[in-house]
Design a protein around this nucleic acid. Sequence first.
DNA 1: ACCGGAGCCTGTTAGC
DNA 2: TGCTAACAGGCTCCGG
Length: 270
Amino acid sequence: MPELPEVETFVRALRRPLLGRTIIDLRNDWPRHIAQPAPDELAARIAGRRIEAIDRRGKYLVFTLSDDETLVIHLKMSGHLSVVPGDAPPDPYAHTVFLLDDGGELRFRDPRKFGRVYLLRDPDGVLGPLGPEPLADDFSAEALAAALARRRRVLKPLLLDQTFIAGIGNIYADEALFDAGLLPTRHSHTLTPDEVAALHAAIRKVLALGIAREGASISTYVKPDGQKGDMQNAVAVFRRTGQSCYVCGGPIERIVLGGRSTHYCPNCQH
DNA sequence: ACCGGAGCCTGTTAGC
DNA sequence: TGCTAACAGGCTCCGG
């Protein structure tokens, strides 16, 4: 389940093999992978475009192409991107493949087919609704405090709301709440200034740790080179139901909030 | 404005 | 040990 740190890991690994390359063609065996525009139009418009920059916005990968085109990819649950030689063994799960001018391929592997590809002249149409980047300099505790007070919502589902903050998914939401010592069932407008400060620091801490450890290989995620990340060895609560809390020794509990499994320590979080 | 549920998918896991 | 059924999970859409 790629979240901000996992997507950032892809972005960093893809820059070296892709920057300066030109996309010459597209292969697709699952048309629903292409969200926008229609697959044949996307193929026609992307051919001949050079990859000039690769960045991340929330959980989206953003490829700035020549001629003011932007390729946007969301990996959703099981998406994976890698650059391989053209004669690499075929991958039945690589539903969308970008052919490169050096003979290589950018493969979008996606067993569950939840991922989406966009080719946009104005990426704001897709990226515009996203909330602030939690690792950006202008994401301050004061800004978070104001945003929390404005919405009266349960913390866990709110952290997963991409229009509130961009990039946090189920793993890092649970980890951030544990690190901040806050129960996932707390309501956003009830946090004290100290609690907001703790949450702000915790969000940035766990995301930065996830990036440093190149992502959490808990379900299907692996790095572009196929190797596992290392963040799964540093989680405090996620999918540790019944196991001992590393801080107090008590059992980690699991509840469902907003339809998502939620893990926390009832002793350490208040 | 917010919440809950269905739907999209298929590999993995739980339960018999 | 082998099978089937439920689950996971980001996000969108719908109805309340």
